[in-house]
Nucleic acid binder design. Structure first.
Lengths: 102, 102
DNA sequence: CATGTTCATCGTAAAACGACGATATACGAT
DNA sequence: ATCGTATATCGTCGTTTTACGATGAACATG
């Protein structure tokens, strides 16, 4: 009966500062914002393409991707030798809702 | 003729990653999100009240306020011995618009 | 099997952050 | 003038972030 309370509460909660701050922190770097923008434009793309559009070393980009993934904003699935990243649209929507109530 | 181009462009730009990331970074700490929330509830309040609602030293809170001010999200005006802080609603609106187009 | 490609992780160095106590500044009150 | 109050800034310390090159793991190809 109250198994779903967490989810329900989360939807109309005033705003969880910890949660919102965590996502903002993940978006708090230009490179990561550009990654999100690019994924939005491409819908999904492989890691190599993201490395190409950023003036950063491959290892650095990989770290940024890791942070975005840890924040739940993107997902990455290994496809053979490559890794394909895409947005987590639900997470982005949650972020937008939270941002709107700031 | 193009003296105002900066401003115009900023209004309908797809999204300036640097700008958006800077604001997100400022919001990337729970204490600062709580400060914003509190200012939204109170509309304006003196620094001392903010210090009271956070489990942090006064100097730490002062630093967080400084970051929020540097990001343009809040303004602070000295009123005699106290300092009164309030939200910069325009900046918040710009942030919300940017967040919505992420 | 050997080699090349794609990506993640490790190790590291510099910079930035977060927190605190101590101090400085500015003002009001006595 | 002195004292107390409110706030900002300084100095410091430990942690985290950002960046890089080097290395490793997984897979494809010759």
């Amino acid at each position: 009966m109250n198994m779903e309370m967490d989810k329900k509460d989360a939807e109309n909660a005033p705003l969880d500062a910890e949660q919102f701050a965590a996502i903002c922190k993940a978006l708090g770097h230009p490179a990561r914002v550009r990654i999100i923008k690019h994924l939005k434009a491409m819908d999904r793309c492989i890691c190599g393409q993201i490395v190409e559009i950023l003036p950063l070393a491959q290892s650095t980009v990989s770290q940024h991707l890791k942070q975005l993934k840890a924040a739940g904003l993107i997902r990455g699935e290994i496809e053979g030798m490559k890794t394909c990243y895409c947005l987590d649209h639900d997470a982005l929507e949650r972020f937008k809702r939270m941002a709107a109530m700031i």
